[in-house]
Design a protein around this nucleic acid. Structure first.
Lengths: 363, 363
DNA sequence: ATCTATAACGAAAACCTTTACTGTTACCCT
DNA sequence: AGGGTAACAGTAAAGGTTTTCGTTATAGAT
């Protein structure tokens, strides 16, 4: 045919070298049983010798299977997500898939680009681990027959599996823990309220506070952004309050690290002056100074559950899995939570009178 | 059964709806000028209405351009790399590329899989940011005509661009800084010595120590693994020494965080009892308690330099770029480095109390 | 020995797009 | 007005693989 200066090591080259047809090479490489063992070996050797690597694009084009699974996360620089990615990839690789990562950076536009990318690259499923799903975008993928799993309320999306995270339990445990050791003035720094899960966590916190019959003054609830800077800023605000909290619960560990930085920066002691509780239990939580008490949400559980839902879907695309598996959370007590020194002082000097000036925290 | 109700929204469907040929659709979508503006608009609208997304695999197959650039990193759970990835992706997206991430986890086998993956997916270039290149694997890509950029000694690889990091300068600054404020007993915890860059950093440290005429006892040089655990373990070893260092220089920030944890865990004060210096200046270095003095290696510089080298290559594949741009490093002094209290104390009270209390550290 | 069932392989279609090539139209210049 | 040319649209090939279908060879059964 056409003579080419460069040698494209394609399936034809292997076929030629092994003295068989390209069909046989394909079958041999894919382990199809209807090929003679002897021949298969010859093909393999030829492929080896030529250093042949199949062209995945061509394979995907014809077979309809790209061998990739999409994973959309919020941001890659928040350590929680790399841990999640790692778990997800490990599981995926084990099952013969590669992963395609997209990060939204909390931007709707980037989310759209991610989805588009996934569709274009023909991923065989996508896990939306962004903790605040974009319903219509997810719907778009579902319509194209792509299995989707996301974190969100049960059955919120027709045709997509959903994973629920038991935010309430963890937050309950955290508040209980603080209450038991004497805290009442507990503040909360949330994630960006545009996120579904941030609102959920905040609500769960307030419920937990209700359960210990302690109303939360509005200035004790601050909107953060899941970053260390946000935690720092939030803590600064809280520490400038006339009536300061004795404990700060954060909606993720990065926020807590920011808080820790702010508190220590002011020369305050943790947990003597202020207790801090994080959320996620990222690996680094064990290594902060002091080590962080936090609510663990096992990202490996999340990852494998997501993948299970996805692959269950691909296996039985007719009857959708639509799992609603619940991911547990639980408190891990380390050293940023403790008995509030300020508490004892408070009793003798009821600064509570000042609060009475404020109608909201009057009771 | 192949009973699929899926609607194949391919280029044909768009062509039909717009009443033109598929070639025109292709040209219109790709912004080729030889298509009438009016017609192009019609095509675009048709594509929009059908919610058409081009099949990237097919495009890649015929055009030879996959639109993807590979990025191989060591491990994704070390925060330095997500930051690098972020920068790299930002730059890549700006230039119209997507990125395909691979992580080696310091395993030669995983590195091989990464390379294989990149080749199979037809990436148009790959940046090997693993700080310890695998020459033959890189060579393999070069042979297939894939532009490669890696971190390593100048011109070490024929046909691949290389980026050099000025480890020496940063380490020199760090050691000078410590020397000026009175440190002489300075230890070093390296990365895994299987990594090229780990050896380089270690050597640079020793050179720096030579420059202040202070020999380094062998027990002051410890092999770590770039993890917090490794740093912790290394610090424990150093702190059990009869003659302890007054400062510990770490080959990356994660190691330093582990050291910080160990030191604080023993009730020692930083920097009064021990100074700690990290390497990388990850974002979190600003938020440790106390904030970490560290040697900055700007990952954004690294990322953009890598991408530049790659795209320069693709632009002029004939005359290889083979850049050897030097990435600077410099010391960022925060609060984990300071005047060594022990220095003065040592003279009067030779740490005898600890040895008597703890028989283990007696010798 | 003949026929059938089956295993093994090859030829070719199909996947979806880009792009070189070809054909058509319209316009401009002389 | 006619020829040349520029601008545009369509046809078809190409890209590398999987997979269907058809063919051949082999073995088993009668």
């Amino acid at each position: 045919m056409t003579l080419k200066p460069r040698t494209p090591v394609d399936i034809r080259a292997v076929a030629k070298r092994a003295g068989v047809s390209i069909a046989t090479v394909s079958r041999a490489m894919n382990g199809i049983t209807t090929v003679d063992a002897e021949l298969a070996k010859r093909v393999m050797r030829a492929a080896e010798e030529l250093n042949y690597t199949p062209n995945t694009q061509a394979r995907a084009l014809v077979s309809g299977r790209s061998g990739m699974i999409g994973l959309i996360v919020s941001e890659i620089t928040n350590p929680f997500f790399p841990e999640l990615i790692q778990s997800f990839e490990d599981s995926a690789v084990k099952r013969g898939y590669e992963i395609l990562i997209g990060s939204t950076n909390y931007s709707a536009e980037r989310m759209m680009q991610c989805v588009r990318r996934m569709v274009e690259r023909m991923v065989e499923g996508v896990a939306v681990m962004t903790f605040g799903m974009d319903e219509d975008l997810v719907q778009q993928m579902v319509e194209r027959g792509i299995p989707v799993v996301s974190i969100g309320p049960k059955n919120s999306l027709e045709g997509a599996s959903s994973l629920q995270v038991d935010f309430r339990r963890g937050l309950h445990e955290a508040v209980q823990h603080l209450a038991v050791i004497g805290h009442r003035k507990i503040a909360f720094i949330s994630g960006p309220l545009s996120l579904d899960s941030a609102r959920q966590r905040q609500k769960a916190f307030q419920e937990a506070m209700s359960s210990i019959s302690t109303p939360v003054p509005p200035q004790f609830v601050i909107e953060g952004d899941h970053t260390m800077e946000g935690g720092f800023a939030g803590a600064e605000k809280l520490l400038s309050l006339k009536e300061k909290p004795t404990a700060i619960v954060c909606s993720n560990d990065m926020t807590a690290i920011g808080v820790l930085h702010a508190v220590s920066g002011r020369g305050l002691k943790v947990p003597d002056d202020i207790s801090i509780i994080g959320f996620d239990d990222i690996h680094m939580a064990q290594f902060t100074v002091p080590p962080l008490t936090t609510i663990r949400m096992a990202c490996s559980d999340l990852a494998t559950a997501a993948l299970d839902a996805l692959l269950h879907d691909t296996a039985e695309p007719m009857r959708k899995f639509e799992a609603t598996r619940m991911i547990p959370t639980r408190l891990i007590v380390r050293q940023t939570s403790g008995y509030p020194r300020q508490h004892a002082v408070k009793r003798t000097k009821p600064a509570a009178k000042k609060t009475s000036a404020r109608p909201v925290s009057a009771d």
